[in-house]
Amino acid sequence: MGGPAAGREPSEGPGRGEACGGRGGAEYGSAVVSALTSPGAEHKTLELVAERGPAPDELDPLFGGLVADLAGSLDAALDEDNMPLDDEPPSVRDDLAAVRPD
């Protein structure tokens, strides 16, 4: 089994599935650390996709191609608007209220 894919556009929609390439868990960990420390990845949602192939040398260009999430939104930029907050279970609404400043 190969590692995550290197910045390809999957069928789910543009800007999704950007990731790193390689051979296993270390590459996933590297991608997560890069996402947490790269200014280009701020407020962006990505999905790691496993594929065979070498890891890219730089992940910042991949993060730069992603659509930024809207400030204050509970959903990622390309998520469908299919679950109003009022329809979420009470436990989900309580958890969100505990962490969101309003």
Results as ranks from 00 to 15, higher is better:
M1N: 13
M1C: 14
M1H: 13
G2V: 01
G2L: 03
G3V: 02
A5W: 01
A6T: 10
R8C: 14
R8M: 14
R8H: 12
P10T: 04
P10E: 04
S11C: 14
E12T: 03
G13M: 11
G13T: 06
G15L: 12
G15M: 08
G15D: 02
G15A: 12
G17C: 14
A19C: 10
A19E: 02
C20T: 10
C20A: 13
G22E: 13
R23W: 07
R23N: 11
G24T: 09
G25P: 04
G25D: 05
G25H: 04
G25E: 03
A26V: 09
E27M: 04
Y28Q: 13
S30E: 06
A31F: 07
A31D: 04
A31G: 00
A31V: 04
V33R: 00
S34A: 15
S34K: 09
A35V: 02
L36P: 03
L36G: 01
L36C: 06
L36I: 03
T37M: 06
T37A: 09
T37V: 08
S38Q: 07
S38A: 13
P39K: 01
G40S: 11
G40L: 10
A41M: 03
E42P: 02
E42Q: 11
E42V: 07
H43P: 06
H43G: 07
K44F: 00
K44D: 00
T45G: 08
T45F: 13
T45N: 06
L46S: 15
E47W: 01
L48H: 00
A50F: 09
E51L: 14
E51W: 11
E51A: 15
E51M: 13
R52P: 14
R52C: 13
P54C: 08
D57A: 15
E58P: 13
L59C: 02
P61Y: 09
P61W: 02
L62K: 04
F63E: 03
F63P: 03
G65D: 01
L66H: 01
L66M: 11
L66Q: 00
L70P: 09
A71E: 06
G72T: 08
L74K: 03
L74Y: 07
D75V: 13
A76R: 02
A76Q: 01
A76N: 01
A77E: 03
L78D: 04
L78W: 02
D79K: 05
D79N: 10
D79R: 04
E80G: 07
E80W: 05
E80V: 11
E80I: 06
D81S: 14
N82P: 10
M83K: 12
M83P: 06
P84F: 12
P84D: 12
L85V: 11
L85M: 06
L85I: 10
D86P: 05
D86K: 11
D86M: 09
D87R: 14
E88N: 12
P89S: 06
P90C: 02
P90N: 04
S91V: 15
V92H: 07
V92Y: 05
R93P: 00
D94T: 14
D94L: 09
D94K: 10
D95P: 08
A97Q: 05
A97F: 03
A97E: 01
A98P: 03
A98G: 12
A98Y: 07
A98H: 06
V99K: 00
V99D: 07
P101H: 07
P101Y: 07
D102N: 05
